[in-house]
């Protein structure tokens, strides 16, 4: 069984998944950040493969992408950095990137490399479900890899059902109509959307992402879904405060609201 599916069998509450960009802030930060996140107690990690034109990302992740590329990150190197990571951690690992760098590497080869590196799932925002099913699904199946699909507040009900049917692992619920790192829409709008999805009783677990940045938004998301994904806010911490274990642990505890919020007061 895929590690993501196994994970959700045991836990369906307050799940915290953290995104960061491979090769940021430094080229060789990747493996260290993964191990520190795991020991800080996050449930899942999303590793971004940097891309020159990240269409669905806001300024913070755009910046980490361009720094990582300048640092020399690429897929081949990332897979090399991930070698052996499974000796140290057991939580699900997900890669996130856009079509072009993956197609350039070769989708089948990519799936094979993911499998040998111990990657459990992939998120490709510009790969629509239809094209995934038609062109790539068989590679994912063979290599025991989950393609995680997204829904947004504008996704029609029948399409949400369809995506739920096609999905395994979990559904990535984009919190509002926005790119990453942008907080948009009123709490009321979000609440309506979150509870609408909750009432649909999808067969897959759901994690809410985009704009989840602090204990309040994390908690709000957890009230309606299985958990949430924090990206830009963590990438910002890496950029401003560095990547040592203490900083990372403090940020994770802050998100989980276990430490004094005022230490992280937003400016």
């Amino acid at each position: 069984m895929n590690r993501i599916d196994k994970f959700f069998k045991n836990k369906r509450k307050d799940i915290l998944s953290i995104y960061f960009t491979a090769g940021y802030p430094h080229l060789d930060s990747t493996a260290g950040i993964i191990r520190k996140l795991a020991s800080a107690g996050v449930d899942m990690i999303e590793i971004g493969i940097p891309f020159s034109d990240p269409l669905a990302d806001g300024p913070v992740i755009q910046y980490s992408n361009s720094v990582a590329l300048k640092n020399g990150m690429n897929l081949k190197l990332l897979f090399r950095q991930l070698r052996g990571i499974r000796k140290y951690i057991d939580i699900p690992l997900v890669l996130m990137s856009y079509c072009n760098p993956i197609l350039s590497y070769g989708m089948e080869k990519f799936c094979r490399s993911c499998n040998s590196a111990g990657i459990d799932g992939v998120i490709i925002p510009d790969l629509p479900p239809e094209l995934y099913v038609k062109e790539f699904k068989s590679f994912f199946t063979v290599h025991n890899l989950i393609n995680i699909m997204m829904i947004s507040p504008q996704t029609a009900l029948n399409r949400i059902r369809e995506i739920d049917k096609l999905s395994t692992g979990f559904i990535y619920m984009v919190s509002s109509s926005s790119i990453t790192g942008v907080k948009k829409g009123s709490l009321k709008e979000q609440t309506e959307y979150f509870s609408k999805i909750k009432k649909m009783k999808l067969k897959n677990p759901a994690l809410i992402g985009f704009g989840i940045s602090d204990p309040e938004s994390f908690k709000h998301a957890c009230n309606f879904a299985d958990g949430a994904i924090v990206g830009s806010a963590f990438v910002k911490v890496l950029g401003q405060e560095g990547e040592n274990a203490g900083t990372i642990r403090k940020f994770i505890r802050y998100l989980r609201n276990k430490i004094n919020v005022s230490n992280y007061e937003k400016n």
Partner: peptide
């Protein structure tokens, strides 16, 4: 060479890693 840019699969200037040049 063939790649995906701005929602379309087409011929595209890119480096060996699939970064658009």
């Amino acid at each position: 060479r063939t790649g995906v840019i701005h929602g379309s699969k087409t011929v595209l200037m890119q480096n060996d890693d699939g970064q658009i040049t």
